[in-house]
């Protein structure tokens, strides 16, 4: 699973960077516009370790934000399915709020929470929370009549059981949604760092942009890609194990 993900990433990254170099030499562009392969290599040697630490910093915030958003989405999803009115309200709110570009909301968050961990965490959570919530709401509000009917008929149905049934029946979909939103969490954290934080790879990219140093950005993208791929593989593996254990 891991080697497949990494293999896919290397292909995409390789295509991207080879195309960039081809454009550079076809259009005879300077190293300022697109760095030379040697410059990218030397930059990688120079910053790889430092950037890796930064990416790990970002990844750890993204993971915490992701876990928080999963937890929040499940809690809100459970509340939303209790009554139709609240459920509809939450769905509408989720649709509306997710329509706001996070870059527009982020400055307000930074004003309120400062440029520390809390803001990065909140933005990372926000960016993956709403798509997660909509999917989880969809799962938790959709009855699985063939299983639930018996418990309803015999008066055994509890909200915990209902949630358990609906999650179990949609576990593959849920794992896919959670894995998909992991990328969003990573993107959210990088965006947050890019906009205002003082740590993480997004902040590092920001500085590289100020310095017009595309080589650094290419190295950063490479490490981000690998780290995100590994995180996705871990999530898929955990999902697979959970599913295997649960379904027997």
């Amino acid at each position: 699973m891991l080697h497949r993900r990494l293999y896919q990433f290397f292909i995409v990254y390789g295509i991207g960077i080879c195309s960039l170099f081809s454009i550079k030499y076809i259009l005879n562009l300077s190293d300022y516009v697109i760095p030379s392969p040697i410059e990218v290599w030397l930059t990688a040697v120079d910053v790889f370790m430092r950037y890796s630490v930064n990416v790990l910093d970002t990844l750890s915030v993204a993971i915490i934000g992701h876990v928080l958003s999963i937890f929040m989405a499940i809690v809100v999803g459970i509340i939303a399915r209790l009554t139709t009115g609240i459920g509809t309200l939450i769905k509408i709110a989720a649709f509306n709020i997710q329509a706001y570009p996070i870059v527009a909301v982020a400055p307000i968050i930074f004003i309120l929470l400062g440029d520390g961990l809390a803001s990065r965490l909140l933005i990372a959570s926000m960016i993956c929370y709403f798509p997660l919530l909509l999917s989880i709401l969809g799962i938790l509000t959709q009855p699985v009549s063939d299983i639930e009917h018996f418990f309803q008929m015999t008066g055994r149905m509890t909200w915990q059981l209902e949630v358990k049934i609906r999650i179990f029946e949609n576990i593959s979909k849920l794992i896919m949604v959670i894995t998909g939103s992991a990328t969003l969490a990573m993107v959210g954290t990088i965006v947050a760092e890019f906009i205002a934080a003082n740590a993480g790879i997004g902040y590092t990219i920001r500085i590289a942009l100020y310095q017009s140093d595309l080589a650094k950005i290419l190295v950063a993208l490479f490490i981000i890609g690998i780290s995100t791929s590994i995180y996705l593989v871990c999530l898929e593996w955990m999902g697979h194990m959970l599913q295997k254990k649960w379904e027997g």
Binding site: D146, I147, M153, G248
Partner: peptide
């Protein structure tokens, strides 16, 4: 009680 042929038992237990 009403039961029908498409009903299923929860999949997480024996």
């Amino acid at each position: 009680l009403y039961t029908y042929n498409l009903e299923r038992l929860p999949g997480w237990s024996l």
